[in-house]
């Protein structure tokens, strides 16, 4: 009897261990029945999706579908809105983002974010990039320089700015500023990159440069890309989710979602019938 219970417990533990172990390898971020609301508005309704490590996960959907809100939930930028309510869970490496004792600063460092409009702070290029590292206490000039150089190279911006790192970042063009923002996010040494329509204001050439950078960066980061341009999702996305009015309608391999969507609303959206 005692032995049987022990065996049962052991087996149970073993299974649990096995499950979490394999999950850690295949899932980086996992939303479980995740809902988000503020005031009386429900912005996201029971989202369930898994994001795998080292993939480009794109989120498409019309305006006000909740895709940006979802992205901003992941690094808890929405905390600043009054009266927010989170329900369900979002797990990052198996740990709840909204659990007690989560260090939000550290969380935001692990999930670097790039906003829709490029925001170059009125500082030098160097100081723009060094902002995040300095805020977490990195002071050494050599360490900072190395971080700056590395992240600028990864954003394909190094060659264009290496001789004027101490000039104002505001003098850069729009496309360069957005790559600067990408570099600034990478200077945090994150695990995940959250990109919120990073090409919305850019010309096709700048867009292509950013897309090339993203495909290259996949090996180092998990990338979540929110985009209004469905073609962009089709070009760079490994898997894609379609959001509509705060709900996730469909999620799957990008190629399948674009060629054989399960839901008629998805096919309506990607063929341009609405949105």
């Amino acid at each position: 009897m005692g032995f049987g219970l022990w065996l049962w417990a052991f087996g149970f533990e073993f299974t649990v261990a096995l499950v979490t172990d394999t999950q850690e390898q295949t899932v980086k971020i996992s939303a479980r029945d995740f809902s988000f609301s503020y005031g009386t508005q429900t912005a996201l309704r029971r989202i369930n999706l898994d994001i795998r490590p080292h993939e480009i996960f794109t989120i498409i959907g019309p305006a006000r579908s909740g895709k940006t809100t979802f992205l901003r939930c992941l690094n808890r930028m929405n905390d600043a809105i009054p009266n927010v309510r989170y329900e369900g869970q979002v797990l990052l490496d198996g740990a709840d983002l909204f659990g007690k004792g989560v260090d939000v600063s550290e969380l935001r460092r692990r999930l670097g974010m790039v906003f829709a409009m490029p925001v170059a702070l009125p500082k030098s290029i160097f100081n723009n990039l060094a902002l995040g590292p300095r805020m977490r206490g990195i002071r050494g000039k050599r360490r900072l320089s190395a971080l700056v150089e590395e992240s600028l190279k990864a954003a394909y911006l190094w060659d264009e700015v290496k001789d004027r790192l101490h000039e104002s970042a505001r003098n850069l063009s729009g496309g360069q500023q957005q790559r600067l923002c990408l570099a600034r996010a990478m200077a945090l040494e994150p695990e995940v990159l959250l990109l919120d329509e990073p090409c919305s204001g850019l010309d096709p050439i700048s867009t292509r440069k950013i897309e090339e950078a993203l495909v290259e960066l996949k090996s180092r980061y998990t990338i979540i890309l929110v985009t209004n341009v469905t073609a962009q999702a089709a070009r760079v996305g490994d898997r894609t989710a379609f959001f509509l009015m705060g709900e996730m309608i469909e999620c799957g391999a990008t190629e399948k979602l674009f060629t054989r969507p399960d839901d008629p609303r998805t096919s309506d959206y990607i063929t341009g019938k609405f949105g």
Binding site: M77, R108, M117, V119, L131, G132, R136, R184
Partner: peptide, 21 residues
């Protein structure tokens, strides 16, 4: 406001966003 968001998204606390940005 977007400047503050940059500071927050880079892992800054409120005080850091005030003093540094």
């Amino acid at each position: 406001q977007s400047y503050r968001e940059v500071a927050f998204a880079a892992g800054g606390t409120k005080w850091q966003s005030v003093t540094r940005v």
